[in-house]
Amino acid sequence: MLVAVLVGCEIGFWLLLAGGLLARYVLRRQRLSAALLLSVPLVDVVLLAATVMDLRGGADATFVHGLSAGYLGFSVAFGHSMVRWADRRVAHRLGAGPPVPKPAPRGTRERLRYEWREFGKAAVAWAVACGLLALMMVLVGGAGAGSSDTAELGAWIVRLTVVLVVWFVGWPGWESVRMAVRRT
């Protein structure tokens, strides 16, 4: 059941986002648009409630429970910027908004700041997801973090940490090295 809720929440996110932007730029209904866009975080609340209810109902912690924590962390950290990203593009296409600026070229200070800012969001996503995973581990109980009941949740902490390290090395770390080499 949790897989269906997770998929439904992802679909719900995009439907609320598209509906909010459609209401803003096509229907010219600003209040409806605001209501739909402000409802986007409710998708996270639904997913969190479903995950906790599933675990409290006695379900074994599975890959999907960990995935839901990762999704929630990503949504909390990147949700606002994803809405802003979509809004700029739709405003340009449908609302005669200004053109979307191109990303700063690699090897520039602007690009370095951008990469560090995005990594900061990734770190927030990691912290939220790992906090939720730790909370789920407590909810599931068992003999502790090494328990078979919580092993899959612990594995998700490792997965998310690997993703964060790769993100650091591949983007802000690489851009920082590139900038340091350019200065010499």
Rank of each mutant, 00 (worst) to 15 (best):
L47M: 11
D54T: 07
L17W: 05
G144N: 08
L22W: 09
W116H: 04
R28P: 00
R182K: 14
E115K: 03
A23R: 00
G66N: 07
D54P: 01
A91L: 08
G73P: 01
L48K: 06
R56Y: 04
W85V: 00
G120H: 02
V43P: 03
G131A: 08
E110W: 01
D54G: 12
L132R: 04
A145P: 12
S39D: 02
R183H: 06
R159V: 15
A50H: 05
L32E: 06
A77N: 05
L36T: 01
A4M: 13
R24I: 06
L36G: 00
V46H: 02
L112Q: 11
A127R: 07
L42A: 14
G107I: 09
M137S: 12
T62L: 11
Y114I: 07
L72P: 00
V177I: 12
A96M: 13
R88C: 07
A77L: 01
S176I: 00
W174T: 08
V163K: 02
D60Q: 15
V165L: 13
F168N: 02
Q30D: 15
D87S: 09
E118Y: 08
E10F: 14
W156L: 05
W14E: 15
G131Q: 10
D60P: 09
V76W: 05
R159L: 15
G154Q: 13
L72T: 05
V26G: 07
K102V: 13
V165A: 11
S148C: 02
G131V: 11
L22G: 03
G142N: 06
T62C: 10
L38G: 12
R88H: 09
G12Y: 03
L21Q: 05
A34L: 15
F119C: 03
S81W: 11
L139T: 03
V140A: 15
L38S: 14
R29K: 12
A18Y: 08
G107W: 06
V45W: 10
R24N: 06
W116E: 00
V26M: 11
C9A: 13
A4E: 12
M136T: 07
S33E: 00
W167P: 02
A122N: 07
V163N: 06
E118L: 11
G57N: 01
A91S: 09
F13K: 02
S68L: 06
R31V: 09
V90W: 07
L133R: 03
A180F: 00
S68W: 00
V166D: 08
A49M: 09
W171P: 01
A69G: 05
L160F: 11
P101W: 05
W156S: 02
R89G: 06
G58M: 05
F13D: 01
G142I: 10
L72R: 01
E152D: 10
S39E: 00
R183N: 10
M1P: 15
A96F: 13
V46P: 01
A180T: 13
S33N: 04
L153A: 13
L139V: 11
F78Q: 04
P98L: 03
G146F: 14
V181E: 11
V46L: 11
F78P: 01
A34V: 09
F13Y: 14
A143H: 13
V45L: 14
T150H: 05
S39W: 00
L15V: 15
M179C: 08
S81T: 15
A34Y: 09
V128A: 05
P101V: 03
I157Y: 09
I157L: 12
R178K: 12
T161C: 07
I157V: 14
G97H: 04
M137W: 07
P99H: 06
S68N: 13
L160H: 02
